[in-house]
Design a protein around this nucleic acid. Structure first.
Lengths: 234, 234
DNA sequence: CCGCCCACAATGTGATCACAAATATGAGCG
DNA sequence: CGCTCATATTTGTGATCACATTGTGGGCGG
C-alpha cells in the first residue's frame, strides 16, 4: 500500500510561492500584453539581474516559456521573442477559432445570466479603456472577457492550449500599440452575451468565431508594413 | 547591422546536441508510446541516475514536459504521469478533432500522390504490426501516419499543439497495452489516402475526424474499468 | 494495542561555479 | 583605409552544493 493515500490531491497546476513561478508570471504577463518587440533577445543573466534573483529561476522561467512557444530558442541557443509573419498570424487565428469555439461550446451548458452580467461589466470596462486610449487596459479586458467565458468549461486540456496561443499572439500586439483608435475595434462581445442569455449555443459559437476573425482581420496588413520597417532599420 | 543576417535562421525548435535534449526526447518517446503507468511518480535524481547524467539535464527535461502538459506537477511539487479520467479523455479527443482536422485541411493543398504512396507503406507496416501483435509498433506507425500528413502543412503553430495532445494521451495508452486484438482496431486510414488521391479535401477532413473518434471510441469504458482497479489495489 | 510525535531520509528549489561555444572587440597587416 | 585574425567578453549548459519542505518509520506515551 505504498501508492494509495488520495490519488487526486487537489489537481493543481503549479505550486505558487517559488521564485521561478513569480518570474514566469511576470514575464508571461508582459509577453501576452505585447510589451516586447518581436525579435527582441533575452539573456538568462540579464533577466536574473533585472528581477534580482540568481540565474536559476530566470533560467527555468525562460525555458518554460520556450516550451509554451511564447519564446523562441534560436539555433544559436539564444532566447528571443518570436518573429511575427502574416502567415504565422493567420495560422494562429485559425487555431484560435478552432479551439476557442470548442471551448465556448463546452462552456455553454455552464453559462447563466450571472455570467452574462459579469461579461457585461467587463465589456463596459473595455469600452472605458478604449475611450481613455488605454491600450493595455483594453487588451487586458479583452482577455478577461474571453477567459471568463472559457473557464466555465470544465477540464484541464483546452485552457492551456488556448493560453499558449494568446501568448504567441502577444509579440504581435506590440506592433499595434500606437494604432489604438485608428484600427477597427468593433467586437462581437455583445452578440456573445446575448447568445448566452438566449440559450443559443450556435449563436455563441458564431459570435466567438467572428470576434476572433474580425478582431484580427485588418492586422496582417499592418504587420507586413511594420515588418518591412523593422527588418531594415531595427 | 547587428540585427540583420537572416531574420529566420533555419527555424528550428531546439539545438540538438545538448544533454537535456537527449533526455527530453527519450522521456517524451516513452510517454507518448504509453510506457508509463498513469500516476507513476518521477524524481529528478532518479531520472538523472538512470540516464547517467547530473540533475540539471533531467531537471530541465522534466520541467519542459510539465510545461507541455505531458507530466503533472503536483502541489507537493512531485512530478508524476497524469491520471486519466474518462472526462479528460473526451476533452483530449475533442481537441484532437478540432486541431487535426484543421491541420489536415491546411496540409491538403500540399498533398500529392507521392504522399499517398508513402502513407500506403505506413499503413501496410501498421497492419503487419497488428498481425504480429506488436502493440508498440502499431502505435508508432499510427503516429507516423498522422504526422506524415500534418507535417505537409506549413507553419510552426499547429504541430506543437497536436504533439502536446498526443503526449497527453500517452499515459492512457498504457492502459490499452494488453488489449491489442481484443479491441476494435479499424481505422480510417484507407479513406484518408483515397481522399488525397481524389483531391477531396472534405473527405480527407472527415476521414481524419472519424479516425480519431473511432480509434478512441470504445476506450473510455475500458478506462473506467481499469481506473477502478488501479484506485484500490495498485 | 493505538495514536502522536520526533528524527531521519528523500526531494525540489535556488545559488554558485566551471567550461565551451558564440559573439563582440581591437590590433595588425596588406 | 579596409579586411582579417587573435583576443576578451558574453552566454548557455552542466555540475555541485546548501537548504527548506515533504514524506517515512520508529519509538514513546497513553
Amino acid at each position: 500500500m505504498s501508492d494509495r493515500s488520495d490519488p487526486f490531491p487537489t489537481e493543481e497546476t503549479s505550486p505558487a510561492g517559488t521564485l521561478q513561478e513569480r518570474v514566469y508570471r511576470e514575464l508571461r504577463e508582459e509577453i501576452m500584453l505585447g510589451r516586447f518587440r518581436p525579435g527582441e533577445a533575452m539573456t538568462i543573466r540579464g533577466l536574473a539581474e533585472k528581477l534580482g534573483t540568481s540565474m536559476m529561476p530566470a533560467r527555468e522561467a525562460l525555458r518554460r516559456l520556450v516550451a509554451e512557444r511564447a519564446l523562441d530558442l534560436l539555433p544559436n541557443r539564444r532566447i528571443a521573442v518570436p518573429h511575427m509573419t502574416p502567415e504565422t498570424f493567420r495560422e494562429l487565428t485559425e487555431a484560435r477559432v478552432a479551439l476557442e469555439v470548442l471551448a465556448a461550446r463546452r462552456a455553454f451548458p455552464e453559462t447563466d445570466s450571472a455570467l452574462a452580467d459579469q461579461l457585461d461589466v467587463i465589456n463596459d470596462e473595455q469600452d472605458v479603456a478604449i475611450a481613455k486610449g488605454d491600450w493595455a487596459g483594453y487588451q487586458e479586458r479583452n482577455r478577461a472577457f474571453h477567459f471568463a467565458l472559457y473557464e466555465r468549461a470544465p477540464g484541464r486540456v483546452l485552457m492551456p492550449l488556448i493560453e499558449s496561443l494568446w501568448l504567441q499572439i502577444g509579440p504581435f500586439l506590440y506592433l499595434t500599440r500606437e494604432s489604438l483608435g485608428t484600427t477597427y475595434l468593433e467586437d462581437r462581445h455583445v452578440e456573445a452575451i446575448a447568445a448566452i442569455r438566449d440559450r443559443d449555443e450556435d449563436a455563441l459559437a458564431l459570435a466567438v468565431e467572428q470576434d476572433i476573425r474580425d478582431g484580427m482581420g485588418g492586422l496582417p496588413a499592418l504587420l507586413t508594413q511594420r515588418e518591412a520597417r523593422t527588418a531594415t532599420g531595427r
